[in-house]
Design a protein around this nucleic acid. Structure first.
Length: 210
DNA sequence: TCATTAACACGGG
DNA sequence: CCCGTGTTAATGA
């Protein structure tokens, strides 16, 4: 549980950490594993220890739209709000990389809201952060042109991987931004001509400041 | 005007 | 060969 303490040790009081240890279930996931499909009921919420989870919204036509990434030290606001109301999942959760996490039963985490100040603060903070980020995403979709959304996506992706070298295909990008590959290829080519990046097969290297 | 769909050629792994 | 990529032409919002 050492890596657990690394991200949550300073956030929760000792008593709560003991409860998490007692009731939490340790789960490992391989890259691309689907944790949750849209329409399923949610009975647990995850605390991410390592790796990255991707939260997606699904459209009727089967198109996907990236909502946000979940990083170590975080929990999923969407999952939390769903399981509080015993609602069906409106989202799809996929492991972007190999993931280590602890899952907690939905009932418990409700009680903890009253019992532990640190838990309440943690949940409030993740919901607040997520809300802020979603507002930004909505802004992107509503008001920005696709080229700006693409740049935003690349910047985020590069930051997430901690490297200017991004491993992804045009097809994957187009799916996450809910557009067609043709458009992504064209926009990327333009960015390459502008010396903003270099294109390889399944790889993009960002040049200069991002 | 700009996105999408279909179609095709190129070429690297 | 297979698949990701670069491009174009037709069509639509």
């Amino acid at each position: 549980m050492m890596d657990m303490l690394k991200h949550f040790g300073s956030v929760f009081e000792a008593e709560l950490l003991a409860e998490i240890e007692k009731h939490g279930e340790r789960v490992s996931l391989k890259k691309d594993a689907v944790i949750l499909e849209a329409g399923q009921t949610i009975r647990t919420i995850p605390l991410l220890v390592s790796g990255v989870l991707k939260i997606l919204r699904e459209e009727e036509s089967g198109k996907e739209l990236l909502l946000y990434y979940l990083l170590p030290g975080e929990t999923c606001a969407m999952t939390f709000s769903c399981c509080m109301e015993r609602q069906l999942s409106e989202i799809r959760v996929v492991a972007e990389e190999d993931v280590e996490m602890v899952i907690l039963p939905a009932g418990l985490v409700n009680d903890w809201l009253v019992k532990y100040r640190s838990w309440r603060n943690f949940i409030m903070r993740t919901i607040r952060n997520r809300l802020n980020e979603l507002v930004k995403t909505i802004d992107q979709i509503a008001f920005r042109k696709l080229d700006e959304r693409l740049i935003h996506f690349l910047r985020q992706k590069s930051g997430q991987e901690g490297s200017p070298l991004i491993n992804i295909s045009h097809e994957q990008i187009s799916r996450e931004l809910a557009t067609s590959r043709v458009v992504i290829s064209r926009l990327l080519k333009k960015l390459e001509n502008d010396k903003k990046l270099l294109l390889y097969r399944n790889q993009i290297r960002l040049l200069g400041k991002w």
